[in-house]
Write a protein that binds this DNA or RNA. Structure first.
Lengths: 123, 123
DNA sequence: CGGTATCCTCATTGATACTG
DNA sequence: CAGTATCAATGAGGATACCG
């Protein structure tokens, strides 16, 4: 079911290749990491997510999440008002990206320099 | 064998996630298309490649190829001097990206708006 | 055929600080 | 906890023209 979902209107008319559209989504610096973290760690709050995605600033995380929400990859749920708590999770469409993100992660792990193994172990 | 090759020095020390490095490679607008075309159409000359990758300017194609060559994804061979003819092909490392590029292309085809089917058929 | 050279614009990221 | 506001820097991508 998730596999046959369709993307919303953000699909560019300018790009004639479905692959460039996929690239524009999963090729942004932090998007695949966010998706990957969300796949493995389940729903997370903003700060928890920021800690998972080590090195991202709150501004960039915020923008990335807005973008991913627009693209219906990520959902944002307000869990409580006081204190304010939200939860970010993958939508079905977002979960359908698993194969892409996993193949990216695996390729990176297999071909990147061993120096980066500490990071690669955060699978 | 290709699967255990290691990337050269371009792997950033700044990025702690192998996945962001993969994203920086395969997330550039035209890179996955070039790789995809080269996977399916084999070695190609500059102009032939430009025709395959419809919509790219010679400048951007040239820059992309330089980049992919630096990253040892693509090889450039001078076939003849007069008239000057070159051939771009995937290296083993480049071919190892097939699974990533294919999963991107498939995801795009499955989830992109049907409007783009003409393009999707260029598989 | 296989590129370079300019020039220009918009997108992306980052550092830092601040807020309800 | 969950963000926004600024400001500055870099870079990717595109249009057009030209070269050996």
């Amino acid at each position: 079911m998730a596999d046959t979902e369709r993307l919303p209107a953000w699909c560019p008319g300018e790009g004639w290749y479905s692959i460039t559209t996929t690239a524009s989504l999963v090729g942004k610096k932090w998007h695949p990491v966010i998706i990957h973290r969300l796949l493995n760690e389940g729903p997370l709050g903003f700060n928890a997510l920021q800690e998972e995605v080590d090195g991202i600033s709150s501004k960039v995380l915020s923008e990335s999440l807005d973008d991913l929400e627009d693209k219906r990859i990520v959902s944002r749920t307000i869990v409580s008002e006081k204190p304010v708590r939200v939860e970010y999770a993958l939508t079905d469409l977002g979960q359908s990206l698993e194969s892409v993100v996993v193949s990216m992660a695996e390729w990176g792990e297999q071909h990147l320099d061993p120096v980066e193994e500490e990071a690669a172990s955060i699978v």
